[in-house]
Design a protein around this nucleic acid. Sequence first.
DNA 1: AGTTTTATGTACTTATCGGTACAATGAATT
DNA 2: AATTCATTGTACCGATAAGTACATAAAACT
Lengths: 195, 195
Amino acid sequence: MPSGRVRQFDADVALDRALEVFWARGYEGATLPELTKAMGINRPSLYAAFGNKEQLFRKALDRYQTGPMSFLTEALNKPTARAAAEAIFSGFIDMQRNREKARGCLIVSGALASGEEAETVRQELAQLRQSIVAVFRKRFESAVEDGDLPKGTDCATLGRYVATVLGGLAVQAASGTPEKELRLVAAMAMGAWPT
Amino acid sequence: MPSGRVRQFDADVALDRALEVFWARGYEGATLPELTKAMGINRPSLYAAFGNKEQLFRKALDRYQTGPMSFLTEALNKPTARAAAEAIFSGFIDMQRNREKARGCLIVSGALASGEEAETVRQELAQLRQSIVAVFRKRFESAVEDGDLPKGTDCATLGRYVATVLGGLAVQAASGTPEKELRLVAAMAMGAWPT
DNA sequence: AGTTTTATGTACTTATCGGTACAATGAATT
DNA sequence: AATTCATTGTACCGATAAGTACATAAAACT
């Protein structure tokens, strides 16, 4: 069976470029001309390789989680809950370095409020944010079991608090707040850590 | 001098309706058909009364600050810095009540990431968020002068921390987090308060 | 009552959106 | 070398975006 003409571009590289556009513009704000230009391909190639705009966004979101956001799972593997929280914050702030247009966090700014057309994407991101809260909670619950966190710690609230500060840091980063100040805020946020 | 036909709608009521749409949809996601339908007027009336979409958004943003967000200035007038911070968080959470579509905060979700067309609005909102940080900082600086906060308190970071938690609460609220959990997070966030 | 002036409603314009038809291209298989 | 078939480029599609022209409606003044 002949395999046809070979693809003229690297799909992973193109996806990284698409990710940058979605990150900077959000799902709605990213237009196909801007996406195709950044990806270095034309429209039919995009549709052949990635489906449609919504599917492309989902693939970019997956890549975001396994790429720039991979520090999250690493952070959760830290030996103590406190170290995990610190690594979550510092990992996120590290991720903002050398970043010009795509500041903040795709999971937050991808579609925080949106038109009807982007409603499903918005809901998926909201659900993803909630699932991240649950992941944090579980990490802290096992820390309580290990005696790493005090018995009676409200792990649900602690997980949500870490997620809230993380979301707040994303908003701050999207507002142009410099790295140094983000680090000071993260350090202060750790002052609420249970003793 | 004849004054012409009188306006058939209340401009303030119409502006409140527009605010709800921008709040739920963001600047880009709000379309003129949705705006005019919610406002109960037709398109030429909107343009005659409010200018264009961008000017309408700015007027809705002003109304947001003097209406739903008016708790902010009240909170800053609390006798102590700590009471002010608590009132900021609880006031914001109160504001989320009885709210179905327009959850979160217009200043955050109005245009966190956006297309080229909405770039100026996005920048204005980012600047507004930074100016809110500055307002918090000033409040805490005078608290230090009054002896309400310890000498040597990092007021810039404290102001930014409060703004970060507030932004994080806005993201959480936009994600559907219920009031009760928001209150627990706010209470935990106060655990970082300087002693 | 007649005139002036502003608001309203319908219908339009231009631009851009996401998505696709179709012919040309070109590497792998036969 | 001929054939196959997915990729590529151009050009297009219908839908919808923001914004406006223009005729009609109605209130205030003379």
